[in-house]
């Protein structure tokens, strides 16, 4: 009951997104890890200029699906992906598509922070450097600073940009990874529980960032916080045991879910 009351308090503005064109279209996606059928027949459209939230109990396949969208599952030896995923109408699993270029376009923030054992500066500059996004040092400095600012980390690290990124706290590392991901200016940004180690202030800042990013990118965010999904997203997908149970506008999912499993989950009865 408590829960339902807070839900009503959340601003459900700007929920109309049907005029946005789909960037990513997934049809009949199945993922097997060896014998384990982790994802079953998932159909989703990720719209441009939209934040899409993936929710669902632990182990239901949210990360797995996210990793399909930029072909990170290619690096998992026993993973097998079938089905069709189109990015701007082009099949990303086509032989002609270079996964390296795809990943530059579809960036990712991982569930566990994974800063490189390099300086804070070099962590953020990594993407711009390998993709040759800047012409000189000053430009690179500019990108590093603006990304660290966007990730709400600049004030904490501006005096020690040369210190190793691995020496930061868990939450700082997570923001460093966010800064690192947006520094390559991806067109679609996949964020796997980006706020799981953040305090409320940093969380609010990251949510603000996500809202800003929506202007230029599509953002997909996996979260275990219903409030966060309701706050930042326009579309929500609910996964359960490898199935996509329900996908729709966030306001509708949280106020008027069609599937009883969705309702049980958002009111806290299954998890």
């Amino acid at each position: 009951m408590e829960d339902q009351k807070t839900m009503k308090d959340i601003h459900l503005e700007e929920r109309v997104v049907s005029d946005h064109a789909p960037r990513i279209t997934a049809r009949g996606v199945n993922v097997h890890y060896g014998e384990n059928h982790a994802l079953k027949d998932v159909d989703v459209d990720i719209l441009s200029g939209t934040v899409t939230a993936f929710i669902g109990p632990s182990g239901c396949g949210k990360s797995t699906f996210l990793r399909c969208l930029n072909r990170m599952n290619d690096t998992v030896a026993n993973a097998r992906v079938t089905g069709q995923i189109l990015l701007d109408g082009e099949d990303i699993y086509d032989k002609r598509v270079d996964p390296v270029q795809l990943r530059a376009k579809v960036g990712m923030v991982f569930q566990k922070p994974n800063p490189f054992p390099k300086s804070i500066y070099d962590n953020v500059a990594y993407g711009p450097k390998i993709h040759g996004l800047t012409r000189n040092k000053a430009e690179l400095d500019g990108i590093v600073e603006s990304c660290l600012r966007k990730a709400a980390l600049w004030n904490e690290v501006k005096d020690r940009l040369t210190a190793p990124g691995t020496g930061l706290s868990g939450g700082q590392q997570q923001r460093l990874c966010i800064a690192r991901a947006i520094a390559t200016s991806p067109e679609v940004l996949l964020m796997d529980e980006p706020c799981s180690a953040l305090d409320p202030i940093a969380t609010a800042q990251v949510e603000e960032l996500i809202d800003e990013l929506r202007a230029s990118f599509s953002v997909v965010i996996v979260t275990h916080s219903m409030q966060q999904a309701a706050r930042v997203s326009q579309k929500t997908a609910f996964f359960h045991l490898g199935h996509l149970v329900e996908y729709g506008e966030t306001g509708q999912i949280f106020t008027n879910p069609r599937d009883p499993r969705t309702e049980s989950y958002i009111t806290g009865r299954i998890g």
């Binding site: 390296v100 960036g107 993709h131």
Partner: peptide, 12 residues
């Protein structure tokens, strides 16, 4: 492996 993932995820 997470370091490799991080790098591949940035398009390296």
């Amino acid at each position: 492996q997470s370091l490799r993932d991080g790098s591949y995820g940035l398009g390296a």
